[in-house]
Protein backbone atom coordinates (compact mmCIF):
# COMPACT_ATOMS: atom_id res chain seq x y z
CA UNK A 1 0.00 0.00 0.00
CA UNK A 2 2.84 2.32 0.89
CA UNK A 3 4.22 1.83 -2.60
CA UNK A 4 0.98 3.03 -4.17
CA UNK A 5 0.97 6.17 -2.03
CA UNK A 6 4.61 6.87 -2.82
CA UNK A 7 3.98 6.47 -6.54
CA UNK A 8 1.04 8.87 -6.40
CA UNK A 9 3.01 11.54 -4.55
CA UNK A 10 6.02 11.24 -6.82
CA UNK A 11 3.82 11.25 -9.93
CA UNK A 12 2.14 14.40 -8.64
CA UNK A 13 5.53 16.04 -8.21
CA UNK A 14 6.50 15.10 -11.76
CA UNK A 15 3.17 16.35 -13.14
CA UNK A 16 3.63 19.66 -11.41
CA UNK A 17 7.13 20.09 -12.79
CA UNK A 18 6.36 18.90 -16.29
CA UNK A 19 3.37 21.09 -16.90
CA UNK A 20 5.81 23.98 -17.32
CA UNK A 21 7.97 22.10 -19.81
CA UNK A 22 4.91 21.34 -21.90
CA UNK A 23 3.40 24.83 -21.68
CA UNK A 24 6.54 26.55 -22.86
CA UNK A 25 7.21 23.98 -25.53
CA UNK A 26 3.67 24.12 -26.87
CA UNK A 27 3.56 27.88 -27.02
CA UNK A 28 6.99 28.67 -28.40
CA UNK A 29 8.66 25.35 -29.37
CA UNK A 30 11.41 26.03 -26.88
CA UNK A 31 12.59 23.31 -24.52
CA UNK A 32 13.33 24.98 -21.22
CA UNK A 33 16.34 23.23 -19.76
CA UNK A 34 16.56 25.73 -16.89
CA UNK A 35 13.36 24.31 -15.45
CA UNK A 36 15.01 22.54 -12.52
CA UNK A 37 16.71 25.77 -11.51
CA UNK A 38 13.40 27.65 -11.62
CA UNK A 39 12.09 24.99 -9.28
CA UNK A 40 14.99 25.42 -6.84
CA UNK A 41 14.56 29.17 -6.90
CA UNK A 42 10.87 28.71 -6.08
CA UNK A 43 11.92 26.84 -2.97
CA UNK A 44 14.39 29.56 -2.01
CA UNK A 45 11.80 32.28 -2.58
CA UNK A 46 9.60 30.57 -0.03
CA UNK A 47 12.54 30.20 2.36
CA UNK A 48 13.48 33.88 2.11
CA UNK A 49 9.92 35.15 2.39
CA UNK A 50 9.30 32.84 5.34
CA UNK A 51 12.29 34.32 7.18
CA UNK A 52 11.13 37.83 6.36
CA UNK A 53 7.50 37.39 7.39
CA UNK A 54 7.98 34.73 10.05
CA UNK A 55 5.30 32.24 11.04
CA UNK A 56 2.80 33.33 8.43
CA UNK A 57 2.43 30.46 5.98
CA UNK A 58 -0.45 31.86 3.93
CA UNK A 59 1.18 35.17 3.16
CA UNK A 60 4.57 33.55 2.67
CA UNK A 61 3.23 31.15 0.10
CA UNK A 62 1.28 33.86 -1.71
CA UNK A 63 4.29 36.16 -1.89
CA UNK A 64 6.51 33.32 -3.09
CA UNK A 65 3.90 32.50 -5.76
CA UNK A 66 4.02 36.07 -7.00
CA UNK A 67 7.82 36.04 -7.05
CA UNK A 68 7.87 32.82 -9.08
CA UNK A 69 5.33 34.16 -11.55
CA UNK A 70 7.32 37.37 -11.88
CA UNK A 71 10.53 35.42 -12.40
CA UNK A 72 8.94 33.67 -15.37
CA UNK A 73 7.89 36.99 -16.93
CA UNK A 74 11.33 38.46 -16.30
CA UNK A 75 13.09 35.52 -17.92
CA UNK A 76 10.88 35.92 -20.95
CA UNK A 77 11.06 39.68 -21.35
CA UNK A 78 14.75 40.07 -20.64
CA UNK A 79 16.07 36.96 -22.28
CA UNK A 80 13.82 34.67 -24.28
CA UNK A 81 12.06 37.50 -26.10
CA UNK A 82 15.21 38.16 -28.04
CA UNK A 83 15.38 34.53 -29.06
CA UNK A 84 11.97 34.62 -30.72
CA UNK A 85 12.43 33.70 -34.35
CA UNK A 86 15.86 32.18 -33.82
CA UNK A 87 16.42 28.47 -34.38
CA UNK A 88 15.04 26.12 -31.74
CA UNK A 89 18.52 24.86 -30.93
CA UNK A 90 19.81 28.36 -30.18
CA UNK A 91 16.90 28.99 -27.83
CA UNK A 92 17.44 25.70 -26.03
CA UNK A 93 21.12 26.50 -25.57
CA UNK A 94 20.16 29.86 -24.10
CA UNK A 95 18.04 28.09 -21.51
CA UNK A 96 21.00 25.81 -20.71
CA UNK A 97 23.11 28.91 -20.12
CA UNK A 98 20.33 30.43 -18.06
CA UNK A 99 20.26 27.28 -15.94
CA UNK A 100 23.98 27.47 -15.22
CA UNK A 101 23.69 31.15 -14.41
CA UNK A 102 20.77 30.60 -12.04
CA UNK A 103 22.58 27.74 -10.33
CA UNK A 104 25.55 30.03 -9.72
CA UNK A 105 23.30 32.79 -8.42
CA UNK A 106 21.51 30.42 -6.07
CA UNK A 107 24.79 29.30 -4.50
CA UNK A 108 25.99 32.89 -4.31
CA UNK A 109 22.87 34.26 -2.66
CA UNK A 110 21.73 31.39 -0.46
CA UNK A 111 24.99 29.34 -0.18
CA UNK A 112 24.94 25.60 -0.58
CA UNK A 113 23.91 24.98 3.00
CA UNK A 114 20.95 22.72 3.62
CA UNK A 115 17.82 24.79 4.41
CA UNK A 116 14.48 24.02 5.97
CA UNK A 117 11.85 26.63 5.11
CA UNK A 118 9.39 24.74 7.24
CA UNK A 119 11.02 25.95 10.48
CA UNK A 120 10.50 29.55 9.50
CA UNK A 121 6.93 29.02 8.35
CA UNK A 122 5.95 27.70 11.73
CA UNK A 123 4.34 24.63 10.23
CA UNK A 124 4.81 20.98 10.87
CA UNK A 125 5.11 18.18 8.38
CA UNK A 126 3.35 15.34 10.14
CA UNK A 127 2.56 11.89 8.85
CA UNK A 128 -0.95 10.75 8.34
CA UNK A 129 -2.09 7.19 8.18
CA UNK A 130 -4.67 7.17 5.41
CA UNK A 131 -5.14 3.44 4.98
CA UNK A 132 -3.80 0.44 6.78
CA UNK A 133 -0.04 0.31 6.34
CA UNK A 134 0.38 3.48 4.30
CA UNK A 135 1.45 6.91 5.52
CA UNK A 136 1.62 10.20 3.69
CA UNK A 137 3.13 13.47 4.84
CA UNK A 138 1.14 16.71 5.04
CA UNK A 139 3.06 18.15 2.14
CA UNK A 140 2.66 14.95 0.19
CA UNK A 141 -1.08 15.58 0.39
CA UNK A 142 -0.52 19.22 -0.52
CA UNK A 143 1.47 18.13 -3.56
CA UNK A 144 -1.29 15.83 -4.82
CA UNK A 145 -4.04 18.38 -4.20
CA UNK A 146 -2.23 21.27 -5.83
CA UNK A 147 -1.34 19.15 -8.85
CA UNK A 148 -4.94 18.07 -9.31
CA UNK A 149 -6.14 21.65 -8.91
CA UNK A 150 -3.57 23.10 -11.29
CA UNK A 151 -4.29 20.56 -14.00
CA UNK A 152 -8.02 20.99 -13.61
CA UNK A 153 -7.74 24.76 -13.91
CA UNK A 154 -5.41 24.54 -16.89
CA UNK A 155 -7.59 22.06 -18.75
CA UNK A 156 -10.69 24.17 -18.18
CA UNK A 157 -8.87 27.32 -19.25
CA UNK A 158 -7.54 25.79 -22.42
CA UNK A 159 -10.95 24.49 -23.32
CA UNK A 160 -13.28 27.28 -22.30
CA UNK A 161 -11.56 30.61 -21.88
CA UNK A 162 -10.63 32.96 -24.65
CA UNK A 163 -7.02 33.32 -23.55
CA UNK A 164 -6.69 29.56 -23.28
CA UNK A 165 -7.93 29.19 -26.84
CA UNK A 166 -5.57 31.89 -28.00
CA UNK A 167 -2.69 30.20 -26.22
CA UNK A 168 -3.45 27.00 -28.15
CA UNK A 169 -3.76 29.00 -31.35
CA UNK A 170 -0.38 30.64 -30.76
CA UNK A 171 1.21 27.25 -30.20
CA UNK A 172 -0.29 25.82 -33.34
CA UNK A 173 0.35 28.58 -35.84
CA UNK A 174 2.07 31.68 -34.49
CA UNK A 175 1.98 33.56 -37.80
CA UNK A 176 -1.75 33.16 -38.29
CA UNK A 177 -2.37 33.93 -34.62
CA UNK A 178 -0.42 37.13 -34.98
CA UNK A 179 -2.33 38.02 -38.14
CA UNK A 180 -5.56 37.56 -36.21
CA UNK A 181 -4.48 40.29 -33.83
CA UNK A 182 -2.90 38.25 -31.03
CA UNK A 183 0.19 39.71 -29.46
CA UNK A 184 2.58 36.77 -29.36
CA UNK A 185 4.88 38.23 -26.71
CA UNK A 186 2.01 38.39 -24.27
CA UNK A 187 1.17 34.72 -24.66
CA UNK A 188 4.77 33.53 -24.68
CA UNK A 189 5.37 35.53 -21.49
CA UNK A 190 2.23 34.02 -20.02
CA UNK A 191 3.46 30.50 -20.76
CA UNK A 192 6.76 31.30 -19.05
CA UNK A 193 4.95 32.85 -16.12
CA UNK A 194 2.66 29.88 -15.55
CA UNK A 195 5.55 27.49 -16.07
CA UNK A 196 7.75 29.25 -13.52
CA UNK A 197 4.83 29.44 -11.13
CA UNK A 198 3.91 25.75 -11.34
CA UNK A 199 7.47 24.50 -11.13
CA UNK A 200 8.18 26.99 -8.33
CA UNK A 201 5.18 25.60 -6.47
CA UNK A 202 6.65 22.13 -6.89
CA UNK A 203 9.95 23.44 -5.51
CA UNK A 204 8.23 25.05 -2.53
CA UNK A 205 6.30 21.95 -1.54
CA UNK A 206 9.31 19.74 -2.10
CA UNK A 207 11.40 22.10 0.05
CA UNK A 208 8.85 21.92 2.84
CA UNK A 209 8.67 18.16 2.56
CA UNK A 210 12.34 17.32 2.49
CA UNK A 211 14.51 20.41 2.79
CA UNK A 212 16.26 22.57 0.25
CA UNK A 213 19.72 22.83 -1.26
CA UNK A 214 21.02 23.95 -4.67
CA UNK A 215 21.10 20.36 -5.90
CA UNK A 216 17.34 20.29 -6.10
CA UNK A 217 17.55 21.08 -9.81
CA UNK A 218 18.39 17.40 -10.36
CA UNK A 219 14.71 16.62 -9.75
CA UNK A 220 13.88 18.89 -12.67
CA UNK A 221 16.31 16.89 -14.76
CA UNK A 222 14.75 13.62 -13.63
CA UNK A 223 11.34 14.98 -14.60
CA UNK A 224 12.56 15.56 -18.12
CA UNK A 225 12.07 11.91 -19.19
CA UNK A 226 8.45 12.28 -18.11
CA UNK A 227 7.73 14.96 -20.71
CA UNK A 228 9.49 13.02 -23.40
CA UNK A 229 7.60 9.85 -22.52
CA UNK A 230 4.31 11.75 -22.45
CA UNK A 231 5.00 13.54 -25.71
CA UNK A 232 6.45 17.03 -25.61
CA UNK A 233 3.38 18.89 -26.76
CA UNK A 234 0.77 17.04 -24.78
CA UNK A 235 -0.33 18.18 -21.36
CA UNK A 236 -2.64 15.19 -21.05
CA UNK A 237 0.21 12.83 -21.84
CA UNK A 238 2.19 14.03 -18.84
CA UNK A 239 -0.14 12.36 -16.35
CA UNK A 240 0.19 8.72 -17.47
CA UNK A 241 3.88 9.30 -18.20
CA UNK A 242 4.42 10.64 -14.69
CA UNK A 243 2.80 7.52 -13.25
CA UNK A 244 4.90 5.20 -15.39
CA UNK A 245 8.14 6.92 -14.46
CA UNK A 246 7.20 7.24 -10.79
CA UNK A 247 6.22 3.57 -10.67
CA UNK A 248 9.53 2.54 -12.21
CA UNK A 249 11.42 4.71 -9.76
CA UNK A 250 9.60 3.57 -6.62
CA UNK A 251 9.81 -0.08 -7.63
CA UNK A 252 13.54 0.30 -8.18
CA UNK A 253 13.95 1.84 -4.75
CA UNK A 254 11.92 -0.91 -3.20
CA UNK A 255 13.26 -3.98 -4.93
CA UNK A 256 16.72 -3.09 -6.25
CA UNK A 257 18.39 -0.23 -4.41
CA UNK A 258 17.71 3.44 -3.65
CA UNK A 259 20.87 4.43 -5.52
CA UNK A 260 19.62 2.84 -8.73
CA UNK A 261 16.41 4.87 -8.58
CA UNK A 262 18.13 7.93 -10.01
CA UNK A 263 18.63 6.00 -13.22
CA UNK A 264 15.15 4.54 -13.45
CA UNK A 265 13.48 7.50 -15.24
CA UNK A 266 16.15 7.44 -17.88
CA UNK A 267 15.80 3.70 -18.42
CA UNK A 268 12.10 4.30 -19.02
CA UNK A 269 12.99 7.12 -21.36
CA UNK A 270 15.39 5.05 -23.41
CA UNK A 271 12.97 2.17 -23.80
CA UNK A 272 10.29 4.68 -24.78
CA UNK A 273 12.53 6.29 -27.36
CA UNK A 274 13.18 2.88 -28.87
CA UNK A 275 9.51 1.96 -29.18
CA UNK A 276 7.67 5.24 -29.72
CA UNK A 277 10.07 8.15 -30.14
CA UNK A 278 7.36 10.80 -30.26
CA UNK A 279 5.99 9.83 -26.84
CA UNK A 280 2.66 8.45 -25.71
CA UNK A 281 0.51 11.34 -26.87
CA UNK A 282 2.90 13.52 -28.79
CA UNK A 283 2.58 14.55 -32.40
CA UNK A 284 4.83 12.65 -34.76
CA UNK A 285 6.06 15.61 -36.70
CA UNK A 286 7.22 17.39 -33.57
CA UNK A 287 10.09 14.98 -33.34
CA UNK A 288 12.37 16.68 -35.82
CA UNK A 289 12.26 19.98 -34.08
CA UNK A 290 14.32 19.02 -31.07
Amino acid sequence: MQIVVNVIVLAALYCLICCGYVLIYRASRVLNLAHGELMTIGGYFLFTVAIGLGNDPVQSFLLAFIFSLALGFIVYFFLMRFMAGESALASVLVTVALGILLRGLITLIWTSQYRHPLQHLGMENSSHQIVEGAVISTFGIAMVISTVLLYLVLFLCFKFTRWGLRMRAVGENPILASQRGISLHMYYALSWGIAAFSVGLAGMIQACDSGLDPDMFVIGLKAFPVVLVGGLDSLGGVIPAAFIVALAEILTIHYISPQASEVAPFVVLISMLLIRPWGLFGTKEELERV
Partner: peptide, 16 residues
Protein backbone atom coordinates in the same frame (compact mmCIF):
# COMPACT_ATOMS: atom_id res chain seq x y z
CA UNK B 1 -2.38 27.47 -43.05
CA UNK B 2 -5.37 29.77 -42.95
CA UNK B 3 -7.26 28.11 -40.09
CA UNK B 4 -6.19 26.57 -36.79
CA UNK B 5 -6.50 22.89 -37.59
CA UNK B 6 -6.66 21.61 -34.02
CA UNK B 7 -9.38 24.02 -32.97
CA UNK B 8 -13.04 23.63 -33.82
CA UNK B 9 -14.79 26.06 -36.14
CA UNK B 10 -16.37 27.83 -33.17
CA UNK B 11 -13.03 28.09 -31.41
CA UNK B 12 -11.36 29.40 -34.53
CA UNK B 13 -13.87 32.24 -34.59
CA UNK B 14 -13.28 33.03 -30.93
CA UNK B 15 -9.52 33.27 -31.32
CA UNK B 16 -9.62 36.38 -33.51
Amino acid sequence: DKVFENLTVEENLQVS
